[in-house]
Each structure stands twice: as C-alpha cells, then as structure tokens.
C-alpha cells in the first residue's frame, strides 16, 4: 500500500515538473503538430488513398502512434538527467519502496501523453480529421495509445539507466524510434517498399498499432499491404501482445537494473 502511495507521489512530481517548465509540454506538442501540418499539406496531396475524407484520416493514427513512441526518449533522458544529478541517491536513501521511483516516472510520463494526445486530436480536427466510429471506440483507441506509451516508457527506463548521459540517451532513443516509425504503414503504404522491408513493416509494432487505431477510428485498414498475414489481419490483438511482451520483459528487467544501478 505504501508502495502505491510512494508511486503516486513520484507521479505527482513528474506532473509538477510540467507545470514548472511548461516549455517541455509545449515542445513535446509542437513537433507532432508540425508533423500533422507537414504531412497533411506537403505529402497529403500526392498520396492517393481512396479513403473518404482523404489522407488526413490515415495520417492521424500514424502521428498519434509516433508521438506516444517518443515517450521512450522522454522517460529515458529524464531519468538519465536525474541520475546525473545524484537525485536518485537521495530517493534511494529514503525508506520508500525501491521501485516507486521508476513506477512513478513511467506513470507520470504516460499521463503526460493524455495532454499531448488531446492537443494532437484538436489539431487533427482543425485540419479535417473526423473519426467515424463513435465516441466509445475513439476513447478505446486513445487508451490503446496510452498503454503503448506506458509500455515504451519502461523500455525508456532501461535505456536511461544503461547510457547515463542524457544527450546520448536522447540520440539513441531517436535513432531507435525514427526508423521504426518510418519503416511502417504510419505515413505511406508499405506496398512501395522492397519485399524484405514489407515483411519487417507488417510485423513492426508501430504498424500494428497504427492499423489497430485506424480500425478503432472507423477506417478500413487498406495500408496493410501484405494482406492475409496475421499482424495485418489482427492488428489490435498483435499490438496488445506486443505491449504485454514489452512490459513482461522490461518491467522486471528495468526495476532490477534500477535497484542495482548503484554498484
């Protein structure tokens, strides 16, 4: 019980950081909003979708997934920063549950996504995004996205503890996340890719997440190029399994690494 309370206090701390440095929040929403505008107006015209409502319907789920994927970088660099300042030493010398710090951080960073996703949603609406599946399905879609961010946040803990230098962590996280979001169906159909990449793209968790969200937002999943394959037929189930696997591996591994990070 006290472990839960400790976790909540750390979560509060994560959220309070945002009110003290609103710039972080502003910048973490500006970038995805820029992506929305760029893709919508720069590429949008040249990608034919045959989808009612146009490219922006397909684009928004891609942007949402990409945005929550960057939770990994945020958690990792934030933790690395705390480690560098010796703040972690203080937390560790307190009589609190030793996992509260990482539990609270992953939770806090994931809750930040609520704000970011809300801003994105509004931006999307302004440029013509109109999900057609009803409020419930849209809500489930967003919960799905938040869960994905939460799972990746645990990978972020591991990365943050491994590299220790906040800038290295940033770079490593981007090097990992960027290709993953582009080697997917997020922004363009995978049909144009070389065959090997198509296989990669269809199993890529970003693709299954994007396809799953499209389904929940009421779109036909026409970007799943390799039709008939398991991930493209069952994107929601596959994504869910991915998240479970990520959490099953990274929660215990990251907690353990955190507990041992002093030696």
């Amino acid at each position: 019980m006290s472990a839960f309370k400790d976790t909540m206090i750390i979560t509060q701390r994560q959220l309070r950081l945002l009110t003290r440095v609103p710039e972080v929040l502003i910048f973490s929403t500006i970038q995805p909003v820029m992506f929305v505008l760029l893709f919508r107006y720069v590429f949008g015209g040249s990608i034919s979708t045959g989808q009612p409502g146009g490219y922006v319907q397909l684009l928004m789920p891609g942007i949402f997934v990409q945005t929550v994927a960057f939770t990994l970088a945020g958690t990792a660099s934030g933790l690395a920063e705390d480690m560098k300042k010796g703040l972690i030493d203080r937390f560790r010398s307190l009589p609190i549950s030793q996992s509260a710090l990482v539990m609270g951080r992953t939770l806090g960073d994931s809750l930040l996504n609520i704000v970011v996703l809300a801003v994105m949603g509004i931006a999307g609406y302004v440029v013509g995004w109109r999900p057609t599946s009803g409020a419930l399905n849209v809500a489930i879609g967003f919960i799905f996205l938040l869960l994905f961010g939460y799972a990746l946040s645990w990978v972020g803990i591991f990365v943050g503890l491994s590299a220790k230098d906040a800038r290295v962590v940033q770079n490593v996280s981007f090097i990992v996340t960027f290709p993953l979001t582009f080697l997917s169906n997020a922004f363009a159909p995978t049909t144009g890719m070389p065959r090997a990449l198509q296989y990669f793209a269809e199993w890529n968790p970003v693709s299954t997440m994007v396809a799953g969200c499209r389904e929940l937002f009421g779109l036909e999943n026409q970007f799943g190029a390799t039709a008939g394959s398991f991930p493209s037929e069952n994107p929601l189930l596959t994504s869910f399994l991915y998240m479970l696997v990520i959490m099953a591996i990274f929660i215990p591994v990251s907690v353990r690494k955190y507990k041992r990070s002093a030696d």
Partner: peptide, 14 residues
Amino acid sequence: IGLSGQYAAVDEIL
C-alpha cells in the same frame, strides 16, 4: 539515517 551527498541531490526544476 539522513544523507547529504557530495553533490546536492535536489530537484533543480522544482
């Protein structure tokens, strides 16, 4: 125990 480490361990932003 109380510990005050070699480098002030407080949250800079808060």
